[in-house]
Design a protein around this nucleic acid. Structure first.
Lengths: 255, 255
DNA sequence: CCAAAAGTGTTATGCTTACACCCATGC
DNA sequence: GCATGGGTGTAAGCATAACACTTTTGG
């Protein structure tokens, strides 16, 4: 490791000419289980907010990318890996942590049902219990984490409505009814079955896997996402180009 | 000022138990002038990247909110104030600044034509020249600022298509043709005049001011934005509620 | 009277919504 | 055979996209 920007002092520590906030990442990890949208929280063992629940997270390493820090913290604190991850927002009110100035970069993560089944969620060494909470029945949260979570839920809703990302909460193969339940749970409202199916199928992101889900009743067709469609942001344009039949690329910026 | 998280040492400076990245804000300030979309850049006087152009920005104060830091830096470095400001994204690759680890929170800003006319853009003490650049004819940029700017342009385009925010680049009163020119310049494509007018007027965000713009040719009606419409995100829902006639609010998160 | 920008409607097409019944299976 | 969830079509209304000429002013 190369400490070119730091200067360990006699009193052991890192010294800078100007004060610096601490920089952390916080993870909002969503999963879908038993028809519930859940989020992973950790019980704090120490003050401040001892006993309260908090988002997993921690300090960014000296030479570590933010994205890598997010993945590492999730792994270390909850033993979860292999998730979809995107940056959400950066929260930096001066008093959000009573101990010191902390700027936190919040990350938004989705765990698929397959990964959820395979992985054993457990708490890291210095963390308290880790457990999943129903997003609509949360405990009291530490710091400003309730606000962060609310913002993450907004983003998740937006993503579901405008992108193919809902798929990331499901197993590789799933029925349309299962998919609809994800949508209804996240958006928190009932959807019309026929219109939902038509719309999803028309969007072209799904393909039949050929298999059927055997169950208590009539078996259901299984679908998967056509690989190319993942993360394809297909919000339609409000001011389409005159010749918008052939999908045209937007003009690039000279650099 | 209260330094509870810091520990000034004998060698003068701020010492922490663990290393901390520096935290900065960078501003992408857009304005619309002479039918061009422009961005404000500052010429660097010192290495690294001496002579190259860069986004205005600087360090976040020890007890300063990120948003406040963004406003302050814009004021100090370019003498610009009174802009629309929103957080864009946080960039934190370990090597984005060769001197030290810097995590920067980028802010996206829009300067109205009225403010542009009133304010004198000038460089702050320690900064080099400040000037406006056409977004489609940029100089070489310092650091990863080209990437940040590209992301900001994407966001601006999205905002124009889905919200009322284009208005913030214009004077308080403007003609529909002027508004169309903003859209065409930002989106970088031609729009149909009749459809543009119908769509904008139908969206209900404009009202006639009652005044006319006298000019070289036929005078044009002036419009303004109905105050309530500003920042009203009116992207329509992809999965509307069954009873979506009366605009219903989305369910709140328990906190 | 000419140049330049402002202003204006209609049609065809496709998408959205609302809505109710039959089908296949397990027990 | 019945309970349960899987699966399907249509009609009405609405928004979109394409398209060209007239109006008003200044010089």
């Amino acid at each position: 490791m190369n400490h070119h920007s730091t200067m360990p002092t006699a009193l052991q520590g890192y010294t800078y000419e100007y004060p610096r906030p601490a920089v952390t990442v916080d993870m909002i990890l969503f999963a879908f289980q038993n028809d519930r949208l859940t989020v992973l929280l950790i019980r704090r063992t120490h003050d401040p907010f001892a006993g309260k629940w908090a988002l997993p997270g921690g300090f960014v390493g000296e030479h570590e990318d933010l994205y890598d820090a997010a993945r590492r913290e999730l792994q270390e604190e909850t033993n979860v890996s292999n998730v979809y991850l995107e940056q959400l927002y950066t929260f930096g009110q001066p008093d959000r942590d009573p101990r010191m100035r902390v700027v936190t970069v919040a990350y938004f993560a989705l765990l698929s049902a397959d990964e959820l089944a395979e992985q054993q969620v457990r708490s890291g060494s210095d963390a308290g219990d880790a457990r999943w909470w129903d997003i609509y029945q949360l405990p009291q949260l530490a710091f400003d984490h309730a606000r962060i979570l609310e913002y993450a839920l907004q983003r998740l809703r937006w993503k579901l409505e405008w992108t193919a990302l809902g798929f990331l909460l499901l197993p590789k193969e799933f029925t349309l009814s299962e998919l609809q339940r994800v949508y209804e749970t996240v958006l928190h409202e009932a959807l019309d079955k026929r219109n939902f199916r038509r719309k999803i199928l028309a969007s072209g992101v799904l393909e039949e896997s050929g298999n059927m889900r055997a169950g208590d009743h009539r078996p259901a067709k299984l679908y998967r996402f056509s690989a190319q469609a993942i993360e394809l942001e297909q919000a339609r344009r409000r001011f389409p180009k005159p010749d918008s039949h052939k999908r045209s690329s937007s003009p690039r910026l000279r650099t």
